[in-house]
């Protein structure tokens, strides 16, 4: 869910590895970033809506990745995937560091781009 640069890259790599990938984004323009083969099955939809997740086949999915730029949308979608649809593997991007820490404590598999990028830059500065 979320087809920005990050979503596009993740989807493409997973697809190249041979996985069946469905990409969901609210903006049809964003889906044009995808390789043509992935565009065929990509869907315009709101990842925070149960109906749209269901339409994307979440009930039979093995993994759900929420990487839109909206923290709260990612958090709602990821928690829905985990608690309502019991998806085995759920990964959620949360840019706000405080929010990221809290959801990690609550057991959500969260990744903070803010924290990762800051750490990398700090490392570069210190080296």
């Amino acid at each position: 869910m979320g087809c920005g640069r990050v979503g596009t890259m993740i989807a493409t790599v997973l697809w190249e590895e041979g996985n069946h990938v469905i990409v969901l984004d609210a903006n049809p323009e964003s889906l044009r970033r995808l390789p043509e083969e992935l565009q065929k099955e990509a869907m315009v939809g709101d990842g925070s809506l149960e109906e749209d997740l269901r339409r994307g086949g979440i009930e039979i999915s093995d993994a759900f990745v929420a990487v839109s730029t909206g923290d709260t949308t990612n958090v709602l979608a990821a928690q829905m995937a985990k608690h309502v649809f019991q998806v085995g593997k759920v990964v959620c991007r949360i840019d706000d560091p405080a929010c990221f820490e809290m959801y990690k404590e609550l057991g959500l598999n969260a990744v903070s781009s803010t924290q990762l990028i800051s750490n990398l830059i700090l490392q570069a500065v210190h080296s």
Binding site: S48, T72, V75, C99, L106
Partner: peptide, 16 residues
């Protein structure tokens, strides 16, 4: 008017 914002705010209030 945005459910996801309502949810996250409530979860922060509750857990933090």
């Amino acid at each position: 008017g945005v459910d996801e914002d309502n949810l996250v705010a409530c979860q922060i209030a509750k857990h933090r």
